[in-house]
Amino acid sequence: MKRLLLLSLFLLPFATFAAGPDVKGIKRDWGFSGPFGKYDKSSLQRGLQVYTEVCSSCHSLKYIAYRNLSDLGYNKNEIKAFASSFTVVDGPDDDGEMFERPGRPADYFVAPYANDNAARAANGGAYPPDLSLITKARGGGANYLYSLLIGYKEPPESIEVREGLHYNKYYSGNLIAMPQPLYEDGVEYADGTNATIEQMAADVTEFLAWSAEPEMEARKRTGIAAISFLLIMAVLSYIAKLQIWANVKKKQA
């Protein structure tokens, strides 16, 4: 009886958030989910390519610096070369002028627009959100993002798609301002992988999951160690408890 109560007290928070996003999305088996999950480096690199060639024309990624790309398996020279392919506005210099220079590893990802209003103006009033935290900032996380990216289908006749909106099977309300971003062979993968819509969606989702939680692998590793330690501590302290309490229990019996 009391065990049941304790259990239900623990389960209360689970019950409250059992209600997920409005539309049921596709559930995919991600290599990074689960207690031993790890990011797939080649998928992350392909995802970076999709982000750079497709998403980055509208969406910023402001919490990621070029130096962070070492997590994806790139070496220093590769990161330097990648960073220098972007133009960073720096300054003011000694004359008080802003100037442009090639990017450095310490720079953060260059945003497509100068400010939020410029982003809105260029996108018909809809603000393309920063993607650094997107898998944490949406119910359903990576599965939702993946579903959304492959969710552009022919609208059913019952739905009227207004000017500037697009039908998406998995978007709440089904009408989204973002036009379909991914098309078959939209990018030419450097590693020769076949660029299907599903492949690109999966890769860029993996990449954005990493952007949201770059600490994930270290976190899970630490977790295994911490919990193992605590369980051993629990067993030892339980044995010690039995021993210390032995004479009390004896007297009671």
Binding site: I227, L230, A234, S237, A240, K241, W245
Partner: peptide, 12 residues
């Protein structure tokens, strides 16, 4: 000792 055991389980 009993609290310490409980704490170990709680922290886990």
């Amino acid at each position: 000792i009993k609290d310490f055991f409980g704490l170990s389980v709680f922290l886990a």
